[in-house]
């Protein structure tokens, strides 16, 4: 059991737990949609005084903020107690080769140091990658009315066409970045 918990979890197990989380949030009287928290935090920061979009009763979203704090805690628990230190992500050989051609070393942990080491924040290129990545995700999630949890899981589970369109968009954007823009910036 402990051995199982310490290894990376299989995809089917993780998929089932995500569905269970979606069900629990419905059972609690809410619904799974993580990026709504970004809007809520803007409102708490006072954005509602200047921009109407942020002028709403954010206290109704308190549960979601608590969920966010839980998610941070979950990441901490995993890195401290539930993983073997520096376990390399076992991505496919083809991906290692493709990323190698762009200048990325084969994985030695869960994230590439080239992009996410603390020092990367203080290089111009490193900072711009983090900044643009965040900006696009934040803007795009609200424009599309949801992110991976709200559209790809909650929305598709309810067989909603708008969510399917959004997920197709996620992939068009991801493919443009991966095959069109990565060769130019890496």
């Amino acid at each position: 059991m402990l051995y199982f918990l310490m290894q990376p979890w299989p995809w089917w197990f993780s998929g089932l737990i995500l569905a269970f989380i979606m069900f629990l949030l419905l059972f609690f009287g809410n619904s799974f949609g993580f990026s709504a928290n970004l809007r809520t935090i803007c409102s708490i920061g006072g954005a509602g005084k200047r921009v109407k979009f942020f002028d709403f009763d954010w206290k109704k979203q308190t549960w979601n903020l608590v969920f966010l704090v839980g998610a941070i805690l979950g990441g901490y628990i995993t890195s401290e107690f539930l993983s073997n230190p520096d376990q390399a992500v076992a991505i496919s050989e083809n991906t290692i080769k493709d990323l190698g051609a762009l200048g990325f070393a084969a994985p030695t942990s869960i994230q590439p140091a080239e992009l996410f080491a603390f020092e990367a924040i203080f290089t111009l290129k490193g900072f711009l990658i983090l900044a643009f990545g965040g900006l696009l995700v934040g803007f795009g999630a609200r424009y599309a009315g949801g992110c991976t949890s709200g559209h790809a899981i909650s929305g598709l589970a309810d067989l909603q066409l708008p969510s399917l369109i959004a997920v197709v968009g996620f992939f068009i954007g991801g493919l443009i970045m991966t095959f069109g823009i990565f060769p130019l910036i890496f």
Binding site: F132, G133, G134, L135, L136, V137, G138, F139, G140, A141, R142, Y143, A144, G145, C147, T148, H151, P162, S163, I165, A166, V167, V168, G169, F170, F171, I172, G173, G174, L175, I176, M177, T178, I181, F182
Partner: peptide, 13 residues
């Protein structure tokens, strides 16, 4: 959904 999704996907990747 399409334009927002594409912008999101760019940032996700």
């Amino acid at each position: 959904y399409l334009i927002g999704g594409i912008l999101f996907g760019l940032g996700w990747a």
